[in-house]
Structures are given as structure tokens and as C-alpha cells.
Write a protein that binds this DNA or RNA. Structure first.
Lengths: 242, 242
DNA sequence: CTAAATTAATGACGAATCGTCAAACATAGA
DNA sequence: TCTATGTTTGACGATTCGTCATTAATTTAG
């Protein structure tokens, strides 16, 4: 029915609007200051309506997290037409993830917070389903790239029988590096490393460890890093430096 | 004065007691259910006294986090008398960190939560100082091990001029692996890897990438992992399996 | 086009929580 | 014993969460 779909679209649009407002509140004040009352007050709707969208505060958090994952996925999708060797393409993923955390620090912080059973228990099932599906799609994308490279003999066959282990290694290093860099309190260790290249170096160490060719000493991956910035993510970088 | 020190000791003991109770509350209910009122009710003190210890709820979180770091540090201290090559000793650190998250899941969860500027802003300065000092001590311990190994030519000299970068790489991989494994929602990727050896494998990939000798294919690090369990952490493992 | 039925929006309200502070209490020294 | 200093108490105001009876809007049936 056309009225049905119109209604659904309006609801979806309102939800996006509410998420925009929620982000605005966190930006202006802080994560703790995001309350349902404030969100209601800032919107042109009432509390009940807000609760029609988000079954609880935790559900709102998950909705923000889901938006973050949607953005990540769309950023990863951009490297479909990026030409480069398989290692460069993996690096592009790491680049994209770091760039996401820079462009959307609030959504990043939210994902970190949401990562806990206590939160999931209070979120609506539909929300959780959407969330984990998007996550799986991204994992599968990374795994697909590893599979192809393995078929082409570009990395060690030692982990051939469990590609998910390799996926996990790359994922864990990206996540760990970026999370510590961007969310940790300032510490002497972090002050003494080059923040701009830390993620590239860490990814390179992992890829070297997987004997993923060409090795870091056989190829100028700093140049690749710059090329990824220009050819894939110029748009995001422009808005970031505006 | 002896009364002074007695007073101070009593206060410190009471603080530890309150932390025990806080953990108990989170264990029995959930992180969100830990309220100052409940903590007060469960203790034999009043709200004002509890607030004499913790300037805010966030300060209480930081206190829990500080306890976690103290425990981690004491666990790392245990491997002073562990005999093994330098790679095995690094692995023992990863093992210790993972074991900590298994023995103290609540403290681990808290550390993750606390990792945000918004929380630190509401914690007392003294608490933050204690926290970051303990953290630095652990980073320096790891860095020291890397330094020694570098001096003995046991890993690539490529990162010689910035040992903190190597420190960060190992730290990021350990943190990322454990955090995703233990805090993430169940996802197909994680269901298809061997959770018990994932941290060892990821650490091995990083160490191979650093060309840290002997390589993972030249040495039975699974045996090292078992040896670490027996020789260093048998005590903790016993309480874990009780 | 009107009236009934269904669906959506509203905001006042109860319960729970945070952090404060004037008053009660305890302790140490004169 | 009495005073000065420090500690403990719990009632209280201010917020916040989530609910639900009431009101408004929309759809359907006649």
C-alpha cells in the first residue's frame, strides 16, 4: 500500500532525525548528558513518541551503534574500485576503519560502550539483529579478501584451514590500535609514537607475520597509505579537515 | 602519629571492603544496577561516608579500574622467575592479560567503560594519577623486555629507533584480541575460531612480523603456553576452575 | 460525507537515582 | 570534664527513566 510505505518512510526519517539530535546532544555536552528527556525536549515530539522509536535508552545506544556500522560498511564499499595488490587492499580497510573513528568519534565511543551483554539485554531484538548482520557482512568482506589472496599464494598457507583466525587477527589489531589511540587517556607510551602512522605500522607487522607478500621492506606502503587517502577516501578527508 | 596511620589504614581497609561489595553487586545483578544507594545499603555505612571515599559514581568506577590494574601488575610481576627465551616471556604477558580478563571479568568490563574522557573528568585527580602510574609501570615493563631482546639481536632492528611503537603493537594486539573475544556479542567469525588458542596465535603473528626469533614454525609455542600456565599461573588457573 | 474503529501522540506521574549539607556524633587534647 | 576538630548520618532537592490513561489523528465502513 502506498500509505503504508509512506508511513514507514516518515517513521524512518524521524528516527534518523532523532539520531542526529542525539549525536548533537553528545557533541555539545557529553555522553552521560544524553537523556531521553533532553532528546525529547530538543525534538518537536513527545516522550511517548521517542519511546515508540527506542524501547529504552540502551536501545537508543544500539541505534547509534547501528548507524555507525552502516557508515563503516558504506566506507568499506568504496574500495571496490580501488586498484592495488591484496595487501594494499587490506590496508585500505584499516585506513577506512581509522578514518571512521576520526570522522565519527561519538559513534565510535558509543560502539565501545554498547559492547556489553548488559546493554544488549535491554535493546530490542530487531535492533540487535540489524546490528549483527551488518557486522557479519563486514567480517565476510574481509574474509573474502583473505580467501582470494590465499588462493593466489600471496600469504602463508599455515592458517589455510582456518581463515577466520586470520580475519580475527587483522580485525583485532585494527580495533585494538584505534581504540587505544583514540580513547585511551594520554600516556607516555602513546606520546612517543607517531600517531599518524601507528595504525599502518601495526597492520604491516601483522601482515608481515602472515607472510603476506610483498613484505613491508619490499614495498612502499607509506605511499600506498597516501594513495588510499587520495583515491578512496578523499571525500571523507576533505570534510574532516574543513 | 600512630593514630594517624591507624586511621589511614582503617580508611584504606574500608575502601577495599566497599570495592568488594561493589563487585558483588555487579556480579549478582549487573553493571547498571550498581548504584551508590545499593552500595550504601549493602555496607554498614551511610551514603555520606561512601561519598567520602568516592567523590562520584565515576570515581568509584575508576577505583575499580585501579584495583584491576593493581591485580594485573601483580600478575605480571609473577613472571620474574619464569625461565624461557624472550619470545616466551612476551607470550607470558599476553597469557597473563587474558587470564586476568577471565579471572576478573567485571574489572575488565569496568576498564573498558572507564576508557573515556567523560568518566575521567568526573573522577578525583588522585585516583587518575594512581591509575595512569600503574599503567605506565606495566608499559615500561613490556618495553624493557623488548629493549633487552633488541640488544640481543633477537628481533628485527627495523623499529630500533622507536621501541614504543613495538610496545604499542604488542599491547594493541593483546588488548584487541581479548576485548573482542570476551566482550563482543556472539558472531559467526568468533564461533569458528578456537577461542582457547586465539590470543596465542594472534600474539605469534605479531611476533613473527617483528621477526622475533625463534619464529613460530621453529619452536613449539603451544608447549610454551602450557608451560606458562603451569609454572607461572597455576594458582590463578586453579581458582578459575574451582 | 459522517460515524465508528483503529492507530499514534501526549505529558503527568511514580519509582529510583545522584550528590549535598546541616545536624548529630565521636575523638583527641587541654 | 570541656572544648575543638574531624567524621558520620540520612533527609532532601533535582534529575532521570519508563509507563499509561487520555487525547488527537487517521483509516475504514456505512
Amino acid at each position: 500500500m502506498t500509505t503504508q510505505t509512506r508511513k514507514a518512510r516518515e517513521v524512518a526519517e524521524r528516527e534518523e532525525l532523532l539520531l542526529d539530535l542525539a549525536i548533537e546532544i553528545i557533541e555539545k555536552h557529553s555522553f552521560a548528558k544524553l537523556t531521553m528527556d533532553k532528546l525529547t525536549a530538543r525534538s518537536e515530539y513527545s516522550k511517548g513518541t521517542v519511546y515508540n522509536h527506542f524501547s529504552s535508552k540502551e536501545d537508543l545506544w544500539c541505534a547509534l551503534c547501528a548507524r555507525g556500522l552502516r557508515i563503516q560498511k558504506s566506507m568499506f564499499g568504496k574500495l571496490a574500485n580501488f586498484k592495488g595488490n591484496s595487501r594494499e587492499r587490506i590496508l585500505a580497510l584499516s585506513f577506512g576503519y581509522e578514518l571512521f573513528t576520526l570522522c565519527h568519534p561519538i559513534l565510535t565511543m558509543v560502539s565501545l560502550r554498547v559492547m556489553s551483554p548488559a546493554v544488549f539485554e535491554k535493546a530490542s531484538p530487531a535492533r540487535i539483529k540489524a546490528l549483527s548482520e551488518t557486522e557479519d557482512e563486514m567480517v565476510e568482506m574481509l574474509k573474502g579478501m583473505i580467501e582470494t589472496a590465499m588462493a593466489n599464494n600471496e600469504l602463508s598457507r599455515r592458517y589455510e584451514d582456518n581463515l577466520y583466525q586470520v580475519t580475527f587477527a587483522i580485525w583485532a589489531m585494527s580495533f585494538g590500535s584505534v581504540t587505544i589511540l583514540r580513547n585511551s587517556t594520554p600516556t607516555p607510551c602513546l606520546e612517543r609514537i607517531d600517531v599518524d602512522s601507528a595504525v599502518l605500522i601495526n597492520a604491516s607487522i601483522v601482515l608481515d607475520g602472515l607472510q603476506w607478500q610483498p613484505y613491508s621492506w619490499e614495498w612502499d606502503y607509506k605511499a600506498s597509505w597516501r594513495r588510499i587517502a587520495e583515491e578512496v577516501f578523499s571525500e571523507e578527508l576533505a570534510t574532516l579537515n574543513k
